[in-house]
Design a protein around this nucleic acid. Structure first.
Length: 212
DNA sequence: GTCCTGTCCA
DNA sequence: TGGACCGGAC
């Protein structure tokens, strides 16, 4: 079927190529990065991560005073809030002895509920952690995805989980697929399908209902 | 000046 | 639902 979620995926992959998001480095760094990047561009989140390079182990980072932590992550913006969020995450993670292996085997909806209970972790960050650290097949139903599919002509549900479940039902449950799909949608949302869209040269132009 | 891989709280 | 949080790149 033309314009299926799978078709869009293949088009984007062909055009942008594999994005290679977050398999490298450590799971811990990935999870901290997911908080730092909230409503911030990745370049600034990266600067903050670079400042944290001597503290990228949970036990070590938890020793940092919140004020010191806030100072180090300054480049990522919202640094006071994000320091608080990282601390909250570490308090939660400590219950599991900072061992992702104790969490990974658990059921994804159960894990999502638990992540959402942590201060500073909302729908997107919870799912990003589920997908990129815990390797669960989850569709990140973020604003990029919403904007792109709506413009393409999909009837996108209002609620985050409704939208996520709709896409998940339409695709095979493969973590690598969701991993790449999210990265491709972000790439597309930053390159062509921006808030102010650049439709010239868009790889989806022929199947898009919203042409500017 | 605008935008950025959001979330919390009233 | 709207405001607060916030620096850096363009």
């Amino acid at each position: 079927m033309i314009k299926s979620y799978d078709f869009i995926y293949r088009r984007l992959l062909e055009y942008y190529g594999p994005q290679g998001w977050w398999p490298a480095d450590s799971d811990f760094k990935m999870m901290i990065g997911s908080i730092l990047v909230q409503n911030t561009n990745w370049k600034n989140a990266e600067k903050a991560l670079e400042n944290l390079k001597h503290y990228l182990q949970p036990e070590v980072m938890h020793q940092l005073a919140e004020e010191k932590l806030a100072h180090l992550i300054r480049p990522s913006g919202y640094y006071n809030m994000k320091a608080k969020k990282i601390k909250a995450f570490l308090y939660w993670y400590k219950k599991y002895d900072y061992r992702l292996s104790l969490l990974k085997f658990r059921e994804k909806n159960e894990l999502r509920k638990e992540l959402l209970n942590i201060y500073g972790i909302g729908n997107e960050t919870a799912d990003v952690i589920l997908l990129y650290a815990m390797e669960k097949p989850v569709f990140i139903a973020d604003n990029y995805a919403r904007r792109i599919f709506r413009r393409l002509g999909y009837n996108v549900p209002h609620g985050y989980d409704r939208f996520r479940e709709m896409v998940e039902r339409a695709l095979p449950e493969e973590t690598s697929l969701f991993n790449e799909y999210h990265a491709l949608l972000v790439a597309h949302g930053k390159t062509h399908c921006k808030a102010a869209p650049i439709c010239e040269g868009c790889p989806l132009l022929d199947v898009c209902e919203q042409r500017f």
